[in-house]
């Protein structure tokens, strides 16, 4: 397996990076999932984290978000000069990590508005309710409805809205288009464009690699827990052999 590194990629020079993930190793129990991953993300950048199923993309995001599973055994994570690797998930959230999980995880028993309000219990608060409903008018219409009764696309919007309701430094999107019809995917993509225009640093994990790459500045490709490519998104889009080998597209 060859590693293709773009010499312009930020991690090699180790200049200051907004979010720096450095040789992290993470385990689900005894299962070695994240096997020494390193990459950097610059402020305002959108990074696509790609790879086949089981490559470790979701696990990497979860590790950055400092969830209990997978557990980080070694390596460092730095966000805006702050060490994140010893934090718990709620501390990471206060430090500015906003994870929009795979399968959305809308809290049952709470309304749409309560789901958003939940995100604003702890400082630092981000977008206010009116601003959120401005970006997601459909959520505003359904604000008193129970969150889990929304359609898949609406739940995805709610999940993103919840992240924006906090003052985040890095947005981690885990498979935002999963299970959604193409027309809904378009809607979500439009929202993500708005977010990009706001300059929010983002890492996006997506099976639908093309859609992710069209949105992103850079791309990191994972294969069985390790980085196999770190370069510009444009390059991946144009390099058919690369795409074929690591993304099977």
């Amino acid at each position: 397996m060859t590693r293709n590194f773009d010499p312009n990629a930020s991690h090699a020079a180790t200049a200051y990076a907004y979010l720096s993930v450095s040789d992290i190793h993470a385990y689900y129990g005894e299962s070695y999932i994240v096997q020494g991953i390193s990459f950097n993300v610059h402020e305002g950048e959108i990074l696509a984290l790609l790879g086949r199923n089981g490559a470790g993309k979701t696990s990497t995001l979860r590790t950055i978000a400092r969830l209990d599973d997978p557990s980080l055994r070694s390596g460092e994570i730095w966000l805006d000069h702050k060490p994140m690797h010893d934090m718990k998930s709620h501390q990471a959230s206060v430090a500015g990590i906003g994870l929009v999980p795979e399968d959305r995880r809308i809290i049952p028993g709470l309304t749409v508005e309560e789901n958003i309000k939940l995100a604003q219990i702890v400082e630092p608060k981000g977008w206010g309710l009116e601003r959120i409903y401005g970006l997601f008018p459909r959520l505003g219409e359904r604000r008193k409805q129970e969150g889990v009764t929304l359609s898949g696309g609406e739940q995805q919007m709610l999940s993103i809205a919840r992240a924006l309701a906090r003052d985040i430094k890095v947005l981690l999107l885990d498979e935002p288009y999963e299970g959604l019809a193409p027309v809904i995917v378009q809607e979500i993509a439009k929202t993500l464009n708005v977010i990009r225009d706001q300059g929010i640093t983002t890492i996006i994990v997506e099976q639908n690699a093309v859609a992710a790459l069209e949105l992103s500045d850079r791309a990191v490709i994972l294969d069985t827990g390790s980085v196999v490519f770190d370069g510009s998104a444009k390059e991946v889009l144009e390099n058919e052999a690369l795409r074929h080998e690591y993304l099977a597209i």
Binding site: A65, L67, D68, K88, S89, H90, S93, V94, G98, L99, P101, R105, I107, P108, G109, L110, E114, K117, L118, A119, I121, V122, E123, R162, R166
Partner: peptide
């Protein structure tokens, strides 16, 4: 109560509540 809402949320999905900055 708000506290109650947080507890209900935590009972339903402890992990996600942590993602929202709450020390459950």
């Amino acid at each position: 109560t708000t506290f109650g809402m947080v507890v209900r949320a935590g009972m339903a999905d402890r992990e996600t509540v942590g993602l929202l900055g709450i020390d459950i």
